[in-house]
Write a protein that binds this DNA or RNA. Structure first.
Lengths: 139, 139
DNA sequence: CTAGCTGCAAATTCTTTGCTACTAT
DNA sequence: ATAGTAGCAAAGAATTTGCAGCTAG
């Protein structure tokens, strides 16, 4: 048996029942450097077990999301995209020309968001931010 | 004929053909103080002309969005919500308990976002940010 | 007049779910 | 053992679209 993926171990910690399908799906998400959608996760999973159904992928990512193990993003293209919940929160820049996604953290930004909310009488519980941008070409 | 809504005038400026249905839909969006989704816009439009189909609402908001007259938002509940494109850009705080949406502008935030993008080699073309929060009760 | 719009229903796309057989624990 | 899971196909929800008749300009 191949070694456990990071996400599989997180699932075990939460006491989730680990089926063969879930192991593969967990591994696919763990190894993904990008932010794959369900169809893409399914495509990669099927390469390792051609019997996995897309319904199982949907059920699995939903389950993992409910346990806080993966994060769901909606980048505006209509389908949900996933990544292992990062240790440190980060936001995304989407290159509108290439679709490439860059992650970043900015503590100043996080602080400012909290302040804005407080100024309006709210306590921030979550936020979502995406920057849409184009690469600056060196002239 | 009732007077023209703000959004209807914007449509005319763009040279859009103004049908009865479009006038009503424009007016509904113009007068909405909230951020109605297509179903809600349709519901309000039907009160003034019970023949308007929801397909027309979909087509109309899409058209107006393509002309930059309305803005589409996805607040994470699966359906798109609309508002007349504001003069000055603003972001949203969503009260996760009540669903209430508060608009705000923060120049400092806008600036910071541009800086973050530039720092990573990008030129910001757009952004989306929603703060999810709960009202601070006075103890 | 005629390009463009509308209503209707069928089609798409993404996601969820009922059911029966199967499997992790 | 047995509660939870997988596959399949059908159901849903939001949105789009083909078509034939209607309408703004």
């Amino acid at each position: 048996m191949p070694e456990k993926s990071e996400l599989e171990m997180l699932c075990l910690e939460k006491g989730l029942r680990m089926t063969g399908q879930r192991r593969i799906i967990a591994s696919v998400i763990s190894l993904a450097g990008d932010h794959p959608d369900v169809e893409e996760i399914h495509k990669r999973a099927v390469q390792r077990d051609n019997g996995i159904s897309i319904a199982t992928v949907y059920r699995t990512v939903k389950l993992m999301e409910e346990f806080g193990l993966v994060e769901r993003h909606e980048f505006g293209d209509g389908r949900a995209r996933f990544e292992v919940t990062p240790e440190a929160h980060h936001d995304h820049i989407i290159d509108v020309e290439t679709g490439e996604i860059v992650e970043f953290v900015d503590p100043e930004l996080e602080l400012l968001q909290r302040h804005i909310a407080e100024r309006l009488g709210y306590r921030l519980v979550d936020h979502r931010m995406e920057l849409f941008a184009v690469k600056i070409t060196g002239r």
